[in-house]
């Protein structure tokens, strides 16, 4: 009984100390941002029902989306390689094959109309700065602009695979991978780094990558960080609320709002978990086995102690 009382005191002071230096201290040091569930409440709802066929004409039209974006799913390969693209736009524009599934529809519509606003980077492209967002806004093709935008979104959704058919790596590539490398997954901003047989081929690749990174650095102000260990250094909650709105956590950052829907965000997080914490399933299964072993060990130790001490008191 006395031992239990002592144990209770030890446990109490241990827990108080733990609570003070971990949950409490971190709540005081870091701003807590609640997730909005990827609802993008600041953006207007889509009021019109889109027509994918008309949307296709708009997306594919001269001077429209495919002027810069590839759509592999619709047989439209990229016109220029990533490095040339980055020289022109600062960053390689994304392929639009799966954006209909990964991105929120409201966000896509707002992005088509006014990219800097939807991406929350208007502070970077002010009139005084003299800089323009590389993607021009869509000013309408002569008809009702809201209808036209809804049509384009409907088209993008119609060509996209179902969200559960998209792999975490594909989601990451579309949403993050043109700015962020993940070296633990061999991902670079210009694609997965192949294994080279010849040193020369590798150097050619590295040179292209360096050129791309130089253009990207010029565009973003600094090279966006490698995200290999971000699941451990930032944690899931931070990453997902950061994707939702980077300005909430890092005011003034050049990083645009990502605009993914909740499923898209989950895919991205899964990719980052695979990069920075790939043994999480093994950790759980080994953990259960170790605990079972230790319970048996504790029971044996208890019986041994009882056996020995029965002669002592």
């Amino acid at each position: 009984m006395k031992e239990l009382k002592i144990l209770a005191i030890v446990v109490f002071f241990t827990l108080v100390t733990y609570w003070l230096v971990e949950p409490f201290a971190h709540s005081q040091m870091h701003k807590h941002v609640e997730s909005e569930g990827f609802t993008y409440k600041d953006l207007p709802a889509l009021t019109k029902k889109g027509d994918a066929a008309r949307g296709q004409e708009l997306v594919m039209g001269a001077g429209a989306c495919v002027g810069c974006h590839s759509i592999e799913a619709a047989g439209m390969p990229a016109a220029m390689d990533p490095v040339t693209n980055s020289a022109s736009y600062g960053v390689n524009p994304p392929d639009l094959s799966n954006v209909g599934a990964l991105y929120d529809a409201k966000f896509l519509a707002a992005l088509i109309k006014n990219p800097a606003h939807a991406l929350k980077v208007e502070h970077k492209f002010t009139p005084e700065s003299g800089k323009m967002h590389p993607m021009p806004g869509f000013y309408g093709a002569g008809g009702d602009i809201d209808q036209e935008v809804a049509d384009m979104v409907a088209y993008l959704q119609s060509i996209a695979p179902k969200v559960d058919e998209i792999t975490p790596a594909q989601a990451f590539e579309t949403a993050c991978g043109r700015c962020h490398a993940v070296r633990y997954e061999k991902w670079t901003q210009i694609g997965e780094k192949p294994s080279f047989k010849k040193k020369r081929d590798e150097l050619v690749f590295e040179t292209k990558l360096e050129d791309y990174k130089a253009n990207l650095t010029n565009y973003m102000g600094k090279l966006p960080p490698d995200l290999s260990m971000y699941i451990r250094s930032r944690g899931e909650h931070y990453l997902s609320t950061f994707m939702e709105n980077p300005q909430n956590l890092l005011p003034g950052t050049a990083m645009p709002r990502v605009g993914v829907n909740a499923e898209g965000a989950e895919k991205v997080i899964e990719y980052l978990e695979d990069a920075g914490d790939p043994k999480r399933a093994e950790r759980d299964s080994v953990g259960v086995k170790v605990m079972i072993y230790l319970l048996v060990f504790a029971a044996a130790a208890y019986l041994w102690k009882k056996e020995i001490w029965k002669d002592l008191h």
């Binding site: 953990g287 605990m291 319970l295 130790a301 102690k305 020995i308």
Partner: peptide
């Protein structure tokens, strides 16, 4: 040994349960 040790080992076993809980979770 084994009087003191047997009691120690029981405490160690409880400690290890706590320790490996922390390690895994």
């Amino acid at each position: 040994a084994n009087d003191f040790l047997s009691k120690d080992m029981f405490v160690v076993s409880i400690f290890l349960l706590f320790f490996f809980y922390l390690v895994f979770w």
